[in-house]
């Protein structure tokens, strides 16, 4: 029991120092929030035009306001998620991996705590800024109730953990390839489309919607956003279950691969 507490303290300390570090520049944090307000301002007008052109009040059960709140959440997650693969890649290139890999902790868990610490502040800031835009231009979300808050919060955290696993798999390639920006680009594009960042998956043609929902990427963005706009507990539980399932699968692969990748490691700087 005491051992578990010490370990928790250890990883919490990592998350906290990074939370602290990511708020070191208040200016930069504020600028990032401006980014999401601009994106959402554009999206509000784009989707309003799209809805009025089609003449429908709801597409696949989503009204224009639902769609916009959906996008608040997906944009918040995509802008707040931590680029773990880029960080591994940097560590390999500047050689600081020599330090981070030889401390008494699990390297993967260390980086997971690091990423979560980094993301938490960004999540709050981005959500507040994005929600403000849609709230002012369109009004409050229609189906969201206070009861859903815990489901939403857990789902967002799980989404970040799942994303961390994907990023980690890409990042481990840096042990061998050194530069993984191309892989990361591909992953981000997958999230844009199959993850449902740009368009809710429900709008896709049948086969593409089915494919996207069968793949785990939708659980990073579409899943939590859907909980937010639909507000159905049973659907929320299914999403949480699928998130946990995929995290278990991906984390297992990640840990196994890490043990392999470490053997291939070569560190720059002689």
């Amino acid at each position: 029991m005491k051992r578990i507490r010490t370990l928790l303290q250890k990883y919490c300390a990592v998350a906290v120092i990074n939370l602290h570090s990511s708020t070191a520049y208040t200016g930069e944090v504020a600028m990032r929030s401006i980014m999401i307000t601009v994106i959402l301002y554009v999206l509000v007008h784009l989707w309003k035009a799209a809805y009025s052109a089609s003449g429908a009040t709801a597409i696949s059960g989503l009204t224009v306001r639902d769609t916009l709140w959906y996008l608040v959440l997906t944009e918040t997650i995509i802008l707040s998620k931590s680029a773990f693969s880029t960080r591994i890649s940097e560590e390999v290139r500047d050689g600081s991996l020599a330090y981070t890999i030889m401390r008494p902790y699990n390297y993967i868990l260390y980086h997971m705590s690091y990423s979560l610490g980094d993301s938490l502040v960004k999540l709050l800031m981005n959500f507040a800024a994005g929600a403000l835009v849609v709230l002012l231009l369109e009004g409050p979300p229609q189906h969201f109730t206070i009861v859903m808050i815990p489901f939403l919060l857990i789902s967002v955290i799980l989404a970040l953990v799942l994303d961390f696993c994907f990023e980690g798999l890409i990042g481990l390639c840096a042990f061998i390839l050194e530069d993984v920006s191309s892989l990361q680009l591909i992953y981000n594009k997958i999230l844009f489309i199959l993850g449902g960042m740009l368009i809710p998956l429900d709008f896709f043609p049948g086969w593409l919607a089915a494919l996207s929902k069968a793949l785990p990427f939708n659980l990073v963005l579409y899943g939590p956003a859907r909980i937010f706009v639909r507000g159905e507990i049973s659907a929320a539980l299914t999403i949480l279950f699928l998130q946990c399932l995929w995290i278990t699968v991906m984390a297992t692969i990640l840990f196994l691969l890490y043990r392999k990748a470490v053997k291939y490691l070569s560190i720059n700087g002689g």
Binding site: I17, S21, A24, D94, G95, S96, A98, Y99, T100, G269
Partner: peptide, 17 residues
């Protein structure tokens, strides 16, 4: 271990952190 050319301190924070 100390690697003279590699950083381990958090760059934006004071060393005490």
């Amino acid at each position: 271990s100390v690697f003279g050319q590699k950083p381990q301190l958090w760059y934006h924070l004071p060393p005490i952190d």
